[in-house]
Structure formats: structure tokens, C-alpha cells
Design a protein around this nucleic acid. Structure first.
Lengths: 198, 198
DNA sequence: TTTCGATTTTAACCTGGGTTAAACTTTTTG
DNA sequence: CAAAAAGTTTAACCCAGGTTAAAATCGAAA
């Protein structure tokens, strides 16, 4: 499978530049699998236990929650190319997941099962370090996201999203962006209207 | 120093029950230091690089940010007994800190310098695992906190805080709690008034 | 093209929480 | 114990953003 090899090479080089030794990476080769997601398919769903850590080769995913009373959806995060994806709280604690993770466009993911990952943690100091760095990165992202929520206006966050994540921006309808910003559709329209003058 | 030994024993038993082998813990003994904070003193300050990972023996800290335009403070998190404390983003990336971390009551902290921690990470698979678990725990906390912000009302969060963290609750004035909940003083008063009937 | 459904914008109304300042209560301190 | 400081509540006013529904626009498919 030529494609598969190519994807693994991408992962190998990403992990390599994060300091993983080739011999350590070899240990993981039997475990990585590749999966194609069509737009609208789910990486994981509410009440599942998230068993896999994924690495997005390409694509966009949204992670969202449904209010069980009202049925409203609220977007929590978007994931895109070269990010590790998991319903991470569920993955870490092996508890029921509170979110849905849905592909917004056709996407490609390399993934590994948590049992294999734990095996690698036990076998290899290098992989333990990998686990630490993934956790630290996840922390950094959710923290930065939360800080945005607490200390910036929706307008600022909208502007930043346009600048920093144009690919997400172009593959996701505005009402999903509004939800992610914590506001309603009409509010985002008001913001956009205000911005045209500037 | 009898006191110091006692604090280390607490840490040893906490880490031991998280799976750390005694031999690995011994490696760290030269590095831990104990510091007393008086109410109002700072664990770290804005623009510092956070060089230490702390473990709260007892006490309460608040981590807050100051709006550079208006001078307003906004509380981000509280830390209390048996939690690891750091301005964690600054600590992980060794970048300038955006927060102040202030003791709300007289407090006691065991801390270790990041260089020593990195040394332990390199020396010992066990300590690498410790680093992973601290990062995973920090992730879990900030994520849970963010979820509260996104999916619960300030009233719910206030109620939960009263139930789950009565010690924080009793050593921190209400206007700090309001700030933490993301609302103003008068709003918290309205919530408290609404609640007396229930 | 034209049409139908999905998406975005607009308008009108309304509410909850912000803001300010004063009153009240509690705690600290001299 | 009295006075001052710190913390909390109340009242009155205001407004950004929520809500709803209709109108406008876009886009894919026929």
C-alpha cells in the first residue's frame, strides 16, 4: 500500500523532529492504522469510550456537545491537519464521552489503539515522553482556547480564526463558527457587518 | 528539619499511590524545597518565566490576569491542598507568564526547579511518566473548568463550588468568586438572593 | 437556466446581566 | 469599644446580545 507508507512517513518525520529516535518509532509500526472519513462521518460519538488516538493527515473535524434538554449543539473545538485528535478526556480516563466528533470535509486519519499506546509507554522511555508531549500540547491548546474565551471578545476571536485557520474557516459554515465563538448566528452577522467598515 | 521530612513523606505517598517506585522517588530528594507563603504573597508574577513546579501542602492560591487597559483583574483558577501548581503554560514553554498567582491564605508549598525536573525526565522512565500524568491531570482540570464555563450557568457553578471546595469558598471573598464565575459582584448577589428560597 | 434547500442577513422586540453609586454589614485595627 | 476598612447587597438605569421570524442570498442539482 503506497499511500499508507506515505502517511506513516509524515508521522515519522513529525515525531522525529519532536525528538523521537527511529528505533523507538519502529516499535509502533504494527499498530498504526489508516482510516478515511467522509464528510458527515463520526470519529467518535456521545457515550462511546474513546479508544484511539488519531493523527489528522488532512481534513477538518468539529467536536461538539448536544444539550440533552433542548437538543441544541454547541461546538467546542475544531481539529485540522497534523493535529492529534481524541475525545481526550474520555481517552485519558476511559470514561463515556460527552461529545461528538464529526468530519466537516473528507478527511484522513492515522490512529493507534490505547492498549497499544500503553504497551509502548511501558516498553519505551521515548514513547512515555511522546505521551507527555501530547498531553502538554493538548493542555496548551485547551488553555489557549479558554483564555480566548475569557479574555477576548467574540469579534477578536473571529478575526484570529480567519487569519490563523483559513482552511477551517472555508470548510465550515458560519453558524458553526458562531457556535464555536459562543454566540448566535445573528450576532455573528452583526459582527461581520461592523467589520466591513474597517 | 522534622517539618520538612513530614511534607516530603506526604508527597512520597501521593506519588507512590500514583505508581512511582521508591527508588525513582529517591532520585528527586535533593531537589525539593519547601516554602512558606504569607497571605498576599505571590507564587509567581506577570512577565516572570515560571521556573518551578509546586505541590501545595496546604493553602489556597488564585491565579488571575490583569487587563492592561482597564486594570481590572479576572480570576482564572484556584489551587488548593495536594494540587500541583504552576503557571503551567509559562512553565511548559518557558515563556513570559501572563498571570499572577497569589496566596489567599498562609500556605505551604514543596517545589522543584524545571532544570531538575528535566534532569529526572532524562534519567528515569518513572519520572517521565510522572510528567505525563501531571500534564494529563492539568489538561483534565482546565478542560473540566472550560466545560463548566461553556455548558453550565454561573448559578450551577457557584453551587458546585460551595459543595466541592468549601475550603476555597471560606478563604476567598465573594467578589473573587464572582470574577472566577465570569460575572460581576451584583450578579452574584442576585444569584445568592434567588437561591435562599430553594 | 430554474428550482429547492441550505445558509446568511436583517429587523423588531425583549431580557439578563453590566454599571454605578449608595446603603448596609462584617471584620479589622488602633 | 469606636472608627475605619473591607466586603456585600440593593436599587435604578442601560444596552449588547438573545430570540424569532421573515427576507435575501448562495449553491447544488435537475
Amino acid at each position: 500500500m503506497v499511500e499508507r507508507t506515505t502517511e506513516i512517513e509524515l508521522l515519522r518525520s513529525i515525531l522525529g523532529s519532536a525528538g523521537m529516535k527511529p528505533e523507538a518509532f519502529e516499535l509502533s509500526l504494527p499498530y498504526w492504522k489508516l482510516k478515511q472519513y467522509k464528510k458527515g462521518e463520526f470519529y467518535n460519538e456521545y457515550k462511546n469510550v474513546c479508544k484511539h488516538l488519531g493523527f489528522v493527515i488532512n481534513g477538518v473535524f468539529r467536536i461538539y456537545r448536544v444539550n440533552s434538554d433542548t437538543g441544541e449543539e454547541k461546538n467546542m473545538l475544531f481539529f485540522t491537519d497534523r493535529q492529534f485528535v481524541a475525545s481526550y478526556k474520555s481517552f485519558l480516563n476511559q470514561t463515556a464521552c460527552e461529545y461528538y466528533t464529526e468530519a466537516m470535509v473528507d478527511s484522513l486519519i492515522l490512529y493507534i489503539h490505547i492498549d497499544h499506546l500503553n504497551e509502548l509507554y511501558g516498553q519505551s522511555h521515548q514513547w512515555e515522553r511522546f505521551g507527555r508531549i501530547v498531553a502538554e500540547t493538548a493542555f496548551h491548546e485547551v488553555m489557549t482556547n479558554t483564555e480566548g474565551f475569557l479574555f477576548k471578545t467574540p469579534e477578536d476571536r473571529y478575526r484570529e480564526m480567519m487569519e490563523k485557520h483559513p482552511n477551517i474557516f472555508n470548510s465550515v459554515p458560519l453558524y458553526h463558527i458562531a457556535s464555536y465563538l459562543g454566540i448566535q448566528g445573528p450576532s455573528l452577522s452583526r459582527i461581520r457587518k461592523r467589520m466591513v467598515g474597517k
